[in-house]
């Protein structure tokens, strides 16, 4: 008997043409797709019962000059096989002017995740209702979670200018 992951993989490969799916370690399914099919894949999975968007993450593969978005889905189902599955939907977008459509229509809770990625990676989500700053106070030239953002240099530039308490005392 095929397990849940294998079945889902076959279903996915039948429904979509240009995606790769791979079942690794029992309850994990990795799906690689193009950025314009990602929403349809996600809504397909949502309709198949994987209705919990656990996380939207982003990895900056600076060597390949791409940002990889990772949507992690699990199921709310009480069915054992389904509940165990972790589905990672991955899509790669360019690092320059990165953008793709928002998934809020499919998963309502994607809203803060996309806001966060917009802020930390500079990804523009089209159709997102409020891409306002979430955590950060300042504006950055390079989005701070990208690999080319040099934390140490930033700290030196911004904070090393502040004199020590003792130096201040000495001045007085």
């Amino acid at each position: 008997m095929k397990n849940t992951g294998q079945l889902l993989k076959e279903k996915l490969l039948l429904s979509f043409e240009d995606i790769q799916a791979e079942v690794s370690d029992e309850h994990r399914l990795t799906v690689n797709c193009r950025k314009d099919t990602v929403i349809t894949v996600l809504s397909f999975l949502n309709n198949s019962g994987y209705d919990h968007l656990a996380l939207i993450s982003c990895v900056d593969w600076i060597k390949d000059n791409v940002l990889e978005l990772v949507y992690i889905l699990t199921a709310y189902a009480e069915d054992k096989g389904k509940a165990k599955m972790n589905i990672l939907v991955k899509t790669r977008i360019t690092r320059e002017k990165p953008g793709l459509h928002t998934v809020i229509p499919v998963f309502e809770n994607a809203e803060p995740y996309e806001r966060e990625l917009h802020e930390l990676y500079g990804i523009h989500f089209m159709g997102h209702p409020r891409l306002t700053p979430l955590f950060l106070e300042r504006e950055y030239k390079i989005p701070p979670f990208r690999k080319d953002f040099d934390t140490r240099k930033y700290v030196q530039e911004v904070f090393d200018q502040i004199p020590f308490v003792e130096d201040k005392k000495a001045e007085k």
Binding site: P133, L134, F135, L136, E137, P144, F145, T151
Partner: peptide, 11 residues
């Protein structure tokens, strides 16, 4: 309105 405790742990 979060962000008062953002410490950038992941970075």
């Amino acid at each position: 309105n979060p962000g008062f405790l953002h410490r950038g742990f992941e970075k």
